[in-house]
Design a protein around this nucleic acid. Structure first.
Lengths: 136, 136
DNA sequence: GGATAACATATTAAATTAGTATGAATTGGC
DNA sequence: GCCAATTCATACTAATTTAATATGTTATCC
C-alpha cells in the first residue's frame, strides 16, 4: 500500500502548472527543470493526464501544457487514476471464477475490499490541487 | 495505490485462525486447504506474522499457528505492516539529501505525504480482525 | 526553414512479486 | 526410538512492473 512515483511526479508537475497559471502554456522542459524530474518520463505522464482531461496542450514552439480544469476541481484521486490506472485493488468481485482463491460463492471478503476501496477513493477525492498548492 | 496479494492472503489466513479459535493450533496446510492458498508462500507470511507478534506457533506434529492477540486487537494495519513492510510511502521526509527531486529545503510536499500516511494508517488501524470475521 | 515542443512507440535495466525447491529442526504418537 | 507432521530457514526463479531512456515524427512559432 503506497503512493507510486508516478503519482508523486504527477502531483509535483501539476503543481508547477497550477503555480504558473497564466494563459501561457508551460513546457515539459520548464516543469522538469523546476521540479528536477526526468523529461521523457514526464512526457508520458502528461499524455495520460491529457487523455484523462486534466490538462490541455499547445503544440509547437512556445507550446506546452495548461490545466484543463480549475485547480479546485482536480483531486488527488483524479491524478492517481490518470497516471496509475486501477489505483485501488478490489481483488475479489464476489465471483469465484474471476478470483482463484474464492472457492465458495459469494466471497465473504468482497464487502471488506469494497469498503476499503470506497473509503480510499473518497479520501483521495477530497484532496484537491488547490489545497496542495496552498500548503506549499 | 493498492492492497497487496500478501495482505490479502494474510487476511484470509488469519481469518481461518480466528474462526478455528479453539486452543488447538491450526496448521498451514489446513489453512491453505480451506482458503485455497499456496502453502509455501503462506509459510513465509506466517513467519513474518510471528516476528511481528500477531501469531504464535507450536512446533512439530499436531503443531501449527494460533493468534497471539485477541481478534479485536489485531488491525488490518498490523497485518499490512507485518507482511508488507513500509505499506505507506512518505517519499520525502523534508530532507533533500534523501530525496533526489527535492531541490529546495524544506520540501513543500512533505506535509501532504505525512497527512496521507497518517490518515491511511489510522483508517487501516480502525479495521479489526473481529469486524472482518463478523461480516463473513 | 530552423528551433521548439508535443506526440508516439520501442527498448531496457533494475526491482518487485508471487511463488517454488530444498532441506533442517522440532515434536507427538506408536 | 522411529516416523510422520509440522514449523523454520534460505535460496532460487519466472513473470511482471517500474522508472526510466532512445529514437523519431508532427505541429507551431518566429
Amino acid at each position: 500500500m503506497n503512493i507510486s512515483t508516478k503519482t508523486e511526479y504527477a502531483v509535483r508537475a501539476l503543481t508547477e502548472l497550477a503555480i504558473n497559471s497564466t494563459d501561457k502554456p508551460v513546457s515539459i522542459n520548464d516543469i522538469c527543470k523546476n521540479q528536477n524530474l526526468p523529461v521523457k518520463y514526464i512526457e508520458q505522464l502528461f499524455r495520460k493526464l491529457k487523455q484523462n482531461g486534466l490538462v490541455k496542450s499547445v503544440h509547437g514552439a512556445k507550446g506546452g501544457y495548461q490545466l484543463a480544469l480549475k485547480i479546485h476541481n482536480i483531486s488527488l484521486k483524479d491524478i492517481m487514476e490518470a497516471v496509475d490506472e486501477n489505483y485501488v485493488a478490489p481483488f475479489c468481485n464476489g465471483n469465484a471464477e474471476e478470483h482463484v482463491h474464492c472457492i465458495g460463492l459469494p466471497c465473504g471478503f468482497k464487502e471488506l475490499w469494497d469498503e476499503i476501496n470506497e473509503h480510499t477513493e473518497n479520501y483521495f477525492d477530497s484532496i484537491k490541487l488547490d489545497q496542495i498548492v496552498a500548503r506549499l
